[in-house]
């Protein structure tokens, strides 16, 4: 897919968030970890709100989580998403005790419940941009 044909919003990484996007591009989900007290945080930001350290590490996440809440969008606020409607956007409690908001694909909206196990997957949507999405994490 060329950049010209990609008609959805794209992130503008900052020095604080660039490692998150670079990690996704290599097929890994990573979160910030405080270099002083070890608390994991998301979305990326310069400071740990627990101890105010600005020392930051990045750790690879397990990619697994549970549905905390969700919405099913039926209206195209941007024409780029029209073909994907209805679209499940899930708020997910990740194992690392942070949350992610991501599309949850391949699920019947009627079967959505709090606590549904999900697992991250990746899609390169254009050159240099990989977005995370979720699938139901079926046992076995």
């Amino acid at each position: 897919m060329t950049d010209k044909s990609y008609n959805k919003p794209v992130p503008e990484p900052t020095p604080d968030s660039r490692p998150f996007w670079d990690s996704l591009a290599s097929g890994r989900l990573s979160f910030q970890k405080c270099g002083a007290c070890g608390v994991i945080r998301h979305y990326p930001r310069p400071m740990c709100s627990a101890c105010h350290s600005m020392a930051t590490e990045w750790v690879e996440a397990s990619g697994r989580g549970k549905v905390h809440s969700w919405t099913v969008t039926h209206h195209a606020f941007n024409p780029g998403f029209r073909d994907e409607l209805p679209m499940v956007l899930a708020t997910v409690d990740m194992e690392e005790r942070v949350r992610m908001n991501a599309q949850l694909r391949g699920v019947d909206p009627a079967s959505l419940t709090i606590g549904l196990p999900v697992r991250v997957d990746y899609e390169q949507v254009r050159e240099g941009l990989t977005l995370p999405f979720m699938r139901v994490d079926r046992p076995g």
């Binding site: 900052t14 941007n78 599309q103």
Partner: peptide
């Protein structure tokens, strides 16, 4: 940065 690219664009979402 983190939600609009996945399709969460408006306050209703």
């Amino acid at each position: 940065e983190f939600e609009m690219p996945i399709g969460a664009l408006a306050p209703v979402q």
